[in-house]
């Protein structure tokens, strides 16, 4: 159907896909809060939430409902516009990243080939980089607008932490780019489909990326912007009701997205072993591929939680030392070695 030289099916298809991806990230984020509490409980020899619904599965709904009904407080001395802008940025930015992740191969429905990726931009990785670093604005603006010394400290911490860890992250990715020769996430996955997963070639790069992902998501051991016991909750100290919920929620969405990213870039994305020799129909393979990516992502999310309940928070100087004196040199070395090997192989 083409009307006014616009392919309307294409638009409908994309809208559906975008909604599906959004709903998926929101639901996963919602149930990550449940998962987080369960994992925390199990690690501490407790049972965790088990009263709301079977196995406590309705707990996220109860929490969300509670947050909605909480009193909305905007501090008198704050800047109301920025105060509301903070959590909004955090949320929007967190949801935006999912656009370039290839959630699966193509599906063929009624003769149309539908790509399970919202936008296969050829600069996928750069896009993610740009958007993720915007995320810190949410924290900074929110912390600044609260007009509270703890929040301000938290936003300063968040800014410098994210700048410091973006560098090694970028350097680790450059090594990956040299190897794959493309910035498109889809192509990176396609290469891994026919070859070994990238983590085999880039173990150090993956490790650096993993550490930086923790820092970018403000997860323990790098949760200094939140730091309940020194900053009273940091940048969301003054927030209540759903604005607080948005901040917390954005963190979980970020975690989901970075898990999906790591799975995509280093662990084959929707590719799984023997996928092309199973003899199944392409649609079936695509769906299985999506399931594979989803499982990998969930494993990473579990890893995030597992680390959170194991390792205590870094001190601020330790954080900076790790970032600048350890990770950046390591990432540089990794980049140089990869470059050398790639050059050698070309000759």
């Amino acid at each position: 159907m083409t009307l006014l030289s616009i392919d309307w099916f294409f638009i409908i298809e994309k809208i559906l896909l975008i909604s599906a991806v959004l709903v998926l990230s929101l639901v996963v984020a919602m149930y990550s809060t449940w998962g987080e509490r369960k994992v925390a409980a199990w690690i501490q020899d407790r049972l965790g939430p088990n009263r709301a619904g079977p196995m406590g599965l309705l707990q996220p709904l109860a929490d969300g409902g509670k947050l909605f009904f909480k009193e909305e407080i905007i501090p008198t001395n704050s800047n109301p516009f920025l105060f509301i802008l903070g959590p909004s940025i955090a949320m929007v930015v967190a949801c935006m990243t999912s656009a370039v992740i290839p959630w699966g191969d193509t599906l063929t429905i009624a003769g149309r080939t539908i790509s399970l990726q919202v936008a296969d931009v050829n600069i996928g990785i750069l896009f993610i980089f740009g958007v993720v670093s915007m995320g810190v604005y949410g924290i900074m603006v929110g912390g600044w607008a609260s007009n509270n010394k703890y929040s301000l400290l938290a936003s300063v911490r968040a800014a410098s932490q994210i700048i410091s860890y973006e560098l090694p992250m970028g350097l680790a990715l450059i090594a990956l780019l040299m190897l794959t020769g493309t910035l498109s996430l889809k192509e990176i996955v396609e290469q891994q489909r026919h070859d070994l997963w990238n983590v085999v070639y880039q173990p150090l790069g993956f490790f650096i990326f993993l550490i930086c992902a923790f820092a970018e998501c403000n997860r323990t051991p790098f949760d200094l912007p939140e730091a309940e016991n020194e900053l009273n909750g940091g940048y969301h100290l003054e927030y209540s009701s759903m604005k607080l919920g948005f901040f917390l929620f954005a963190e979980y969405i970020n975690m989901f997205i970075s898990s999906a990213l790591m799975a995509t870039m280093y662990f084959g994305g929707y590719a799984f072993p023997y996928m092309d020799s199973l003899g199944l129909s392409p649609n079936m393979i695509s769906l299985l591929g999506f399931a594979a990516l989803f499982i990998k992502t969930l494993l990473f999310i579990f890893f995030f939680m597992w680390v959170r309940w194991t390792i205590p928070r870094f001190r601020y100087d330790q954080l900076m030392r790790l970032g600048w004196k350890v990770l950046i040199p390591l990432a540089l070395a990794n980049m140089l070695i990869t470059g050398g090997v790639v050059l050698l192989r070309q000759h």
Partner: peptide
């Protein structure tokens, strides 16, 4: 050291829970 710690927490994940419902 971190890997050792993670091993310990992983072990606790499957241990009998102390909670009495």
């Amino acid at each position: 050291a971190i890997a050792k710690g993670m091993g310990i927490t992983l072990k606790h994940l499957f241990q009998r829970k102390a909670t009495v419902s």
